Amino acid sequence: MAAGGDHGSPDSYRSPLASRYASPEMCFVFSDRYKFRTWRQLWLWLAEAEQTLGLPITDEQIQEMKSNLENIDFKMAAEEEKRLRHDVMAHVHTFGHCCPKAAGIIHLGATSCYVGDNTDLIILRNALDLLLPKLARVISRLADFAKERASLPTLGFTHFQPAQLTTVGKRCCLWIQDLCMDLQNLKRVRDDLRFRGVKGTTGTQASFLQLFEGDDHKVEQLDKMVTEKAGFKRAFIITGQTYTRKVDIEVLSVLASLGASVHKICTDIRLLANLKEMEEPFEKQQIGSSAMPYKRNPMRSERCCSLARHLMTLVMDPLQTASVQWFERTLDDSANRRICLAEAFLTADTILNTLQNISEGLVVYPKVIERRIRQELPFMATENIIMAMVKAGGSRQDCHEKIRVLSQQAASVVKQEGGDNDLIERIQVDAYFSPIHSQLDHLLDPSSFTGRASQQVQRFLEEEVYPLLKPYESVMKVKAELCL
């Protein structure tokens, strides 16, 4: 049975990233139509530049190519590739079939990587351009969430054990800070992308030097003109047959890092959902379990974690691919890159769409948070109580021993009897502590235990987050809708 299948058929496997999760716009960027249309555009740009620099290419040939950029006979191309065992030459023939007058000058002087690699770089750039505003929107939604809850005390956790208090907004800023680093890295790697350009079979530009009869300047002009037509500021000066596969490492490393950030955020949300302090959106008709109707599973956060793990592992592909590119190139890269580049971007696209949807509907339960604080705060307040007693004339050592005994009794009630923490009640009825009984409410005010959390939130948002989001103001209103 021949390899390949009808990918629109229910009898043929289709990647869930495309069929179930990723956005239509990201799927289109990695589609065959987008790819092969870009090949034709690159052939047109090459012909236009070659004509401008004096090669015998007519206006009629150029116009014929322009008129057929979208006229792609995919069936013919597939048949040609089956016959020739070469995808680029299959599309040269297919393009030439609908451009008979231009057929002889299509791909003039070029090698397969002229269309293959340059198209990949265009796709990487455009895919990054799709991700950047999506990530900015996630940051914006979380920034709104953090600002609104900047002063809401909550129990902090280290080692997932109760620690000092923080605020809900401050905790959210930990998430935002990681995503801001990801946004900066995505922008950097996007701006650092260079075009492969017009380089020939081993990167020496020998074929173009021959076409222009040894004119170095025209060869350099050709490279520059096509690079500018493709919208790049610069091209690699040095290439082998391909652009260095280190570029793929750079791009997928940034995406993998984004995956790590999203995994951490969504894990926190899942843990908070278990504590009943916070939940992701839950639709009115949504079913959490087929057997347990009360369940409210954090399905979206779980999906993000599941896909983020996949995204983090994909960076190993370009690392290994770059390491086995012998001399000017081997074909070890080809099949692998067809999979890992598309999957990385479709996965990143999915987790950003999902995280935006989550961040637009996060639900906080202040009463649950308050109750958990009441359970733990008495123990945390013991040092403040000791200091207040010393100020009232008591002995630190005597007070410490009193607190120690009462704390152990209260802990026994919590752990052995399943009761509430009654340390404060014990202190309130103990005559030894009568000098500070009137101060206990103040000493137990949760806001006095959150330090500068709310001020940190305000400063972080104003100095770091809002300036970073400013270039994306025009796209901030787009909502994230999930079908599944």
Score class of each variant (00 low, 15 high):
residue 3 A to T: 08
residue 4 G to K: 15
residue 5 G to F: 12
residue 8 G to C: 15
residue 10 P to D: 09
residue 11 D to H: 15
residue 12 S to G: 15
residue 14 R to S: 15
residue 17 L to R: 01
residue 18 A to K: 11
residue 22 A to S: 15
residue 23 S to C: 07
residue 25 E to C: 07
residue 28 F to L: 08
residue 37 R to D: 07
residue 37 R to L: 13
residue 45 W to N: 15
residue 48 E to G: 05
residue 49 A to I: 05
residue 51 Q to I: 07
residue 52 T to F: 06
residue 55 L to A: 01
residue 55 L to K: 12
residue 57 I to D: 00
residue 58 T to R: 12
residue 62 I to D: 02
residue 62 I to L: 13
residue 63 Q to G: 09
residue 66 K to Y: 12
residue 66 K to A: 11
residue 66 K to N: 15
residue 68 N to S: 10
residue 68 N to F: 09
residue 72 I to L: 12
residue 72 I to V: 09
residue 73 D to Q: 07
residue 73 D to I: 05
residue 78 A to S: 13
residue 79 E to C: 11
residue 79 E to R: 15
residue 81 E to Y: 03
residue 84 L to R: 11
residue 86 H to R: 00
residue 86 H to A: 01
residue 88 V to C: 08
residue 89 M to H: 05
residue 92 V to M: 09
residue 92 V to W: 00
residue 94 T to I: 14
residue 97 H to G: 11
residue 101 K to F: 09
residue 102 A to D: 04
residue 102 A to H: 01
residue 106 I to W: 00
residue 106 I to G: 01
residue 107 H to I: 04
residue 108 L to A: 14
residue 110 A to L: 05
residue 111 T to S: 12
residue 114 Y to R: 00
residue 124 L to W: 12
residue 127 A to K: 00
residue 127 A to M: 02
residue 134 K to W: 11
residue 135 L to S: 09
residue 141 R to N: 11
residue 151 S to I: 11
residue 154 T to K: 02
residue 157 F to Y: 08
residue 157 F to W: 07
residue 159 H to A: 00
residue 160 F to W: 04
residue 161 Q to S: 02
residue 164 Q to L: 12
residue 170 K to E: 00
residue 170 K to Y: 02
residue 172 C to W: 06
residue 177 Q to Y: 14
residue 178 D to V: 05
residue 178 D to R: 02
residue 180 C to R: 05
residue 181 M to T: 11
residue 182 D to P: 05
residue 183 L to C: 10
residue 183 L to D: 03
residue 190 R to E: 07
residue 190 R to Q: 13
residue 190 R to M: 13
residue 196 R to W: 02
residue 197 G to S: 11
residue 197 G to C: 07
residue 199 K to Y: 01
residue 205 Q to I: 04
residue 212 F to P: 04
residue 216 D to I: 06
residue 223 D to I: 00
residue 227 T to C: 13
residue 229 K to W: 03
residue 230 A to V: 06
residue 232 F to Y: 07
residue 232 F to P: 01
residue 233 K to W: 08
residue 238 I to R: 01
residue 244 T to F: 02
residue 245 R to M: 01
residue 248 D to A: 00
residue 251 V to M: 07
residue 253 S to R: 05
residue 255 L to I: 14
residue 256 A to L: 02
residue 258 L to V: 10
residue 259 G to C: 05
residue 270 R to I: 03
residue 270 R to S: 04
residue 273 A to L: 07
residue 276 K to F: 07
residue 276 K to I: 05
residue 279 E to F: 06
residue 283 E to H: 13
residue 287 I to V: 05
residue 290 S to Y: 03
residue 291 A to W: 02
residue 294 Y to F: 07
residue 296 R to T: 11
residue 297 N to L: 03
residue 299 M to K: 02
residue 301 S to R: 00
residue 303 R to P: 00
residue 304 C to W: 02
residue 306 S to C: 03
residue 307 L to I: 08
residue 308 A to I: 02
residue 311 L to A: 05
residue 313 T to K: 04
residue 313 T to N: 07
residue 314 L to H: 15
residue 316 M to S: 11
residue 316 M to T: 14
residue 319 L to G: 02
residue 322 A to Y: 12
residue 322 A to G: 08
residue 323 S to D: 01
residue 327 F to C: 10
residue 340 C to I: 15
residue 345 F to Q: 04
residue 348 A to C: 15
residue 352 L to R: 03
residue 359 S to A: 08
residue 362 L to P: 07
residue 363 V to P: 05
residue 363 V to L: 13
residue 364 V to D: 05
residue 366 P to F: 02
residue 369 I to D: 04
residue 372 R to G: 04
residue 374 R to F: 06
residue 376 E to G: 02
residue 379 F to L: 05
residue 380 M to I: 05
residue 381 A to W: 04
residue 387 M to Y: 06
residue 392 A to G: 12
residue 393 G to N: 07
residue 397 Q to T: 11
residue 399 C to M: 06
residue 401 E to T: 10
residue 401 E to M: 07
residue 403 I to N: 06
residue 404 R to F: 12
residue 406 L to T: 07
residue 408 Q to W: 07
residue 408 Q to D: 10
residue 410 A to H: 04
residue 413 V to S: 13
residue 419 G to E: 13
residue 420 D to L: 05
residue 424 I to T: 12
residue 433 F to H: 05
residue 436 I to N: 05
residue 436 I to G: 03
residue 436 I to F: 03
residue 438 S to E: 14
residue 439 Q to C: 14
residue 444 L to M: 15
residue 449 F to A: 04
residue 458 Q to E: 12
residue 460 F to L: 07
residue 464 E to Q: 08
residue 475 V to D: 11
residue 483 C to H: 14
